[in-house]
């Protein structure tokens, strides 16, 4: 093997080892990298911290209630477990029932959270509005498309 190919192989091996090392670190600190926990993770891993925590899931259907002018309560679900959320403030435009959401807030008790911030999370599907209308007209509107 010529010297230049030895160098090439050396560089590639170094890169693979370095990459593996970084990935090992990242996956072992997974807890600190996730942006939010789902309600099930919260209950199963028993994460009930004193400080702020972010929880993500879907806004449960027909759970959004307006308490007063800018006070809301809704349930956040991952289809296994639900959490009741209270929030005072302005909700993002995309926020509605059935839509993905991430909230940042303080845990009140096992089932209730007081949200300080509410983010809307949208999925990777893009579709013209006219097609959605057509689909709904023909009763072809599917849940997975949301």
């Amino acid at each position: 093997m010529s010297l230049r190919f030895q160098r090439l192989v050396l560089i590639l091996i170094t890169l693979v080892i370095l990459g593996a090392a970084v990935l090992l670190i990242l996956f072992n600190t997974k807890k600190n990298i996730v942006f939010f926990y789902t309600p099930t993770e919260l209950i199963e891993q028993n994460i009930f911290s004193e400080g702020k925590i972010r929880i993500g899931g879907y806004v449960k259907d027909s759970s959004l209630k307006k308490i007063s002018l800018n006070q809301y309560s809704f349930e956040i679900t991952d289809n296994k477990n639900d959490l009741l959320v209270f929030y005072q403030g302005i909700l993002p435009d995309l926020f509605r029932e059935g839509q993905g959401t991430v909230i940042e807030g303080l845990i009140v008790n096992q089932k209730t959270v007081k949200a300080l911030k509410v983010y809307a999370k949208h999925d990777e599907n893009y579709m013209p509005a006219s097609i959605k209308k057509e689909l709904e007209k023909n009763n072809q509107w599917k849940r997975d498309y949301k």
């Binding site: 996956f27 996730v34 999925d123």
Partner: peptide
């Protein structure tokens, strides 16, 4: 794909 993020997955 690896972690929960606010950013949506690739389309």
């Amino acid at each position: 794909d690896w972690w929960n993020t606010l950013h949506q997955p690739a389309s």
